[in-house]
Amino acid sequence: MQNEKVITVNKLTKKFGDFTAVDHISFDVFKGEIFGFLGANGAGKTTAMRMLCGLLFPSSGEATVAGYDVYKENEKIKKSIGYMSQKFSLYEDLTVKENMQFYGGIYHMTEKYIKEKTATILKQLHLEKEGNLLVKSLPLGWKQKLAFAVSIFHEPGIVFLDEPTGGVDPVTRREFWNMIYEASDRGTTIFVTTHYMDEAEYCNRVTIMVDGRIDALDTPSNLKKNYNASSMDEVFLILARKAVRAAD
């Protein structure tokens, strides 16, 4: 898994006026990896991720996603990635099945594929009975798991998860991570931002962003060793205390 690079980022920068949200970051992500993107609020995680998804235009630097250039080939990138945003991303006034039908539809999936895939997902999540319920009637934990399932509905090579477990209880978070592992085992590359440090431990490698820069990038165990810390929490605190930018 350590050989094929699916995301390459070189000195990627995003400025909003005078404010440099993302400051010359560089890293590579390998196929099938769970790549954790950590940082305090306002450190620039979401901005960096949005540039890779084609939602934001970089100010400078280079980046490729699935082999495609973020400046020129973002239409091709869009076909190869899945995305789950910070905000809840399913339609509350549509049923579970209608949501899947919609997302399958806008990803050019065939009617047959959508049907089969919907059945498989509902079975996996033990939601067979809830398929025709409106999403708004489901508890938050289920919604988040569903949203993740929908983001990989079209079986993308890479999926970007922007703080996917915000506001979810520990048990559901654990289940959520099991789903991530399963997807990773199937060869999907996971790019995930979070500020739960226990989740950082689940990642293959993590970067820690401070003030728009990447201050550390390694496996969780190496990071702990290098910073002489007993947990990722401590590593994070050591790095985040250096931040001058106020969290928003």
Partner: peptide, 13 residues
């Protein structure tokens, strides 16, 4: 407002 627009814009639509 809901954030679903982001998802649509990330899609190939």
């Amino acid at each position: 407002e809901l954030g679903t627009m982001e998802i649509i814009l990330v899609s190939p639509m």
